[in-house]
Amino acid sequence: MPLAMTLVAGAGPATPPNALEAAGWRHAEWHGVAPARFRPLPGGGVAVEGRGEGSFVWRRVQGGAECLSWRWRVDAGPPPTDLTRASGDDRALAIAVGFAGWPTRVTFWQRSQHAFAQAAAGSHPLPRSVLLYVWGGTGREPAAFPSPHMAGLGMVRVLRPAATPPGRWFEERVDLAADWRAAFGGEPPPLQEIVIGTDVDDTGSRVEAQAEEIRFRPCR
């Protein structure tokens, strides 16, 4: 998918007010991909179900880069796929954090690609750099690697490969400031939004997953 379809909260119509919006989330779709079904969970989390579909929910966040913690589980998801490639890279869940500023060494081409995506997104300001934490992949991907869809403006870490045992909760905690520095250099810009998405359209897989207890907090 091109950058315009994959930058955080960058595509799809606004969802009418519903339980998700009452819980602070907005549901968005990728053009040409049937949307999955999200529902809110107590405490600010979400659950997702679908088959051969993909979409995401997002909400605004503010403040500086801190530590982000959550717990998640996958009861059904796609088989291992190579997430370093732009074709066929399905994943059960991804939690992405968008930042308001550019990578330290942003190029003119990257700015141009972002401008193209922003034109497609309309009035919603897109983040200029993104960290993505994924449940999916082969487990053989590098520890951190550029998203093949985001023109170098998104960095991916696989926290749980697709072969992780299903039906179990796993706790996660990531240092956003440290990860941003390692990915893009310099000091991280302010936070802008958080996204939870699924993408199983290439393999036509069934997905059933949850993420909850999502918290931004100081790392010390």
Rank of each mutant, 00 (worst) to 15 (best):
G44N: 07
G43H: 12
V207S: 01
A65G: 03
L176E: 00
L153E: 05
L176G: 03
D202K: 13
T81W: 06
P78C: 11
H124F: 09
G139N: 10
A119M: 07
D90K: 05
F99T: 05
P42F: 13
V134C: 14
S123P: 09
V61K: 06
V158S: 06
R26Y: 02
S55P: 06
L3G: 04
A119W: 08
M150C: 15
L68M: 06
W25P: 07
V130H: 02
A36S: 13
P13M: 01
Q110C: 09
A115F: 03
P17M: 06
E66R: 14
A209I: 07
T203D: 13
Q118A: 11
S123C: 05
T84M: 04
F116T: 09
L93K: 07
L20T: 07
L68Q: 04
A182M: 03
P218V: 10
F99Y: 07
A211S: 11
Q62N: 09
F38L: 05
F38W: 09
R160T: 01
Q210W: 10
E53S: 02
V174Y: 08
L41T: 11
L7I: 15
R217V: 02
D82N: 07
H124M: 07
H31D: 15
E49I: 00
G152H: 12
V33S: 02
R85D: 09
R59A: 00
E29P: 04
A94Y: 00
T198N: 12
A151K: 01
S55R: 04
S112D: 09
G152K: 11
G197R: 12
H31V: 12
G32A: 11
V48T: 05
E208A: 01
S129A: 10
V207P: 00
G98T: 10
R140M: 05
V156D: 14
T6A: 15
H149I: 14
R160E: 03
P78H: 14
R105G: 15
P78N: 12
V97K: 02
E172P: 08
P79H: 03
M155G: 11
V57P: 03
P188N: 12
W30Q: 14
P165Q: 05
T15R: 14
V57G: 04
V33Y: 08
M155W: 13
C219S: 10
